[in-house]
């Protein structure tokens, strides 16, 4: 209910503030009222999002979920670092993509849990590992299997480091 009200206020706040800003000369009084409505809507929306995170049913895409997905990815990467062949080169991009965590979906919840600076630190390390995995995929598609295995192997260290960082942040939260 709160979220619907917030969206309605944002919707009308944007429309009317844009209309009153477009007047020649600008209708400052009505523009100011519209901006206040917009800001109230945004405040309600942000409060609603924070409340939603606190309820158990909405705790998706949290730090723990991210950790789980990294471990799953690490297991797959370890497998590829041992065994690669031309049979899998056509499908490897799809297979890796299907298990790679989508960072954008985790952002809001994780930032709420550990703060933006820690999130940046964590993703910086994870993204380096991710890049090596993507490079390994490109090398596999191009059938440079020995290089691809090496990239996969190197990425495992970075994924492990990401998990260690998550564990450290979880300890700090406790």
């Amino acid at each position: 209910m709160l979220n619907k009200l917030a969206i309605a206020l944002i919707f009308f706040g944007v429309i009317f503030s844009a209309i009153f800003a477009s007047f020649i000369p600008i209708d400052w009084t009505n523009f100011s009222i519209s901006i206040v409505v917009l800001i109230i809507g945004i405040s309600l929306q942000r409060r609603g999002m924070k409340n939603a995170l606190k309820t158990e049913t909405n705790k998706n895409n949290t730090l723990d979920d991210f950790r789980e997905q990294i471990i799953k990815l690490k297991k797959a990467v370890e497998k590829y670092s041992e065994n690669l062949s031309s049979e899998i080169s056509e499908n490897i991009d799809e297979e890796i993509s299907s298990i790679m965590p989508e960072v954008e979906n985790f952002r809001f919840a994780i930032v709420e849990e550990i703060g933006v600076a820690n999130f940046t630190e964590l993703i910086s390390v994870y993204a380096k590992g991710e890049r090596l995995i993507r490079r390994a995929v490109s090398a596999t598609i191009d059938e440079y299997f020995e290089d691809a295995k090496r990239y996969f192997k190197d990425s495992v260290n970075l994924l492990e480091k990401s998990v260690e960082m998550i564990d450290k942040f979880r300890e700090e939260i406790k």
């Binding site: 944002i10 706040g13 944007v14 503030s17 844009a18 800003a21 477009s22 000369p25 600008i26 523009f31 901006i35 917009l38 800001i39 945004i42 929306q45 942000r46 999002m49 809001f108």
Partner: peptide, 25 residues
């Protein structure tokens, strides 16, 4: 003045649940 009013709307929209909404709109 129009730039200023636009900047106020765009700045406010950056705080919504959709990152960068002010830029997109």
């Amino acid at each position: 003045a129009k730039f200023l009013t636009g900047a106020i709307i765009g700045g406010a929209l950056s705080f919504t649940a959709i990152p960068g909404l002010g830029v997109i709109m």
